[in-house]
Write a protein that binds this DNA or RNA. Structure first.
Lengths: 231, 231
DNA sequence: TCCCTCATCTATACAGTGTCAAGTTGTTCC
DNA sequence: GGAACAACTTGACACTGTATAGATGAGGGA
């Protein structure tokens, strides 16, 4: 007999508390942000005592790690879809995944902040490691294919095995500019530069300039031109 | 009569609690990171009750805002010094300040994380607004001078008044790549790419590639070459 | 000299947090 | 049907940030 608490809740046992906690966590993150995130509040929304989640997640870090895993996979899914769309329309795949990275983070800032270290996570968790490796693998293979002038990355060995290739500096720079722009935008660091309402303009500007930047800095011959400057 | 609690502590009153709290905050940040930061722990180290700091900082956010102000000014000082050094040795000023940004963050990761939004700050605080505007002003003027082919930025109006200039996209990208690289490096997101001990190599690599990237993407003619790509 | 004022600090209390130990409930399997 | 076990509750603990009221000492005017 499901009472009004929601489907699956039929008395003492919840039914699917793990999923309910994750849903509640996402809702709390969306409403109150990372700073206002609380394990007890999530348990309250799932209609369960404060100690109940411990059986599924161990502790607070465990729940956040599950959210971070979702975040990584959300990034990967969005990047994959964007790359496929770009291939279909003849656009640049690398620019498309960078823009997808930014848009995904903008759609769920709280989740994105959980992924990128704003609170303690369990970095040994195998599921999260898999999701993280998958997301980074997309960045690696797409950057490499872009530099090689290929239409799309060929199927090959796992990215983590080939990550120490000599061109990983370009991969890091492509990721850095995307991640940096995303982080600064989400954290409102650009607010005193542009009005609140011009977020769309900023996004379009990013895409446009990013194209040029990627084209100029990550071209196949870029790694060979080694100038003698000093810092 | 100063007892063993420290200079200036002569009984009921502390003497310079404000500075002592800031020092304690920096120490706690260095030891335990942002996540382990606690107002009560700082008060404990300053040899003072938990409620004492309220009179100087209002609340926890007030103390963190003071630390963030220090962080902004630390960034500004390091960038100014690096730019002057670059001018003296004939190096690229923009690359020098980007590298200084990275090195300053690496030297005090906890302080850097406080500056960039890992915990609640008082964004209306005038001192912090001044420090933030100063740091960003350096980035703006140096990027603009770099793009104009000048040896150094000329004295002119306040950067905040001219920030909406048409070339602010390039300023944002230069900041983004530096900030993104810094954030990812500090948060250990590159750890599975490179070994723990090769931080120096990564820093050198960053400087070298950054030079090329800045040269290619932020050259004076870069803004004019507007290709018809679509995201 | 005394006393008054006021910023500074202490003591105490309160609601809220994460986590642990022990007990309760329901399911599943023999 | 009973046993074993996972899932959940209850109650407690140490800890947090913050509010309030009271204690302390420094400085200024008479």
């Amino acid at each position: 007999m499901a009472d009004k608490r929601g489907a699956g809740r039929d008395g003492y046992h919840h039914g699917d508390l793990r999923q309910a906690m994750i849903d509640a966590a996402e809702a709390v993150l969306a409403e109150r942000g990372v700073g206002g995130f609380t394990l007890r509040e999530c348990a309250r929304r799932a209609g369960v005592s404060a100690a109940a989640p411990a059986h599924h997640f161990g502790n607070l870090a465990g729940l956040l790690t599950a959210v971070a895993t979702l975040g990584f996979d959300g990034l990967s899914d969005a990047m994959d879809a964007a790359a496929a769309r770009a291939s279909a329309t003849g656009g640049c795949r690398l620019a498309a995944i960078c823009r997808a990275y930014l848009e995904t983070a903008l759609a769920r800032p709280g989740r994105f902040r959980v992924v990128f270290g704003r609170r303690e996570l369990d970095k040994e968790d195998p599921e999260m490691q898999r999701a993280g490796a998958r997301a980074f693998g997309i960045l690696v293979s797409e950057t490499r294919a872009h530099r090689a002038g290929l239409a799309a990355p060929p199927p090959g060995p796992l990215p983590s095995e080939t990550a120490k290739a000599p061109d990983f500096a370009e991969i890091l720079l492509a990721w850095s500019v995307t991640h940096g722009f995303t982080t600064l935008l989400i954290d409102g660091q650009f607010d005193f530069l542009v009005g609140e309402d011009s977020g769309e303009d900023l996004l379009a500007l990013f895409s446009q300039r990013l194209m040029h930047l990627l084209g100029a800095a990550l071209a196949p011959d870029a790694a060979l031109a080694n100038r003698g400057h000093d810092g």
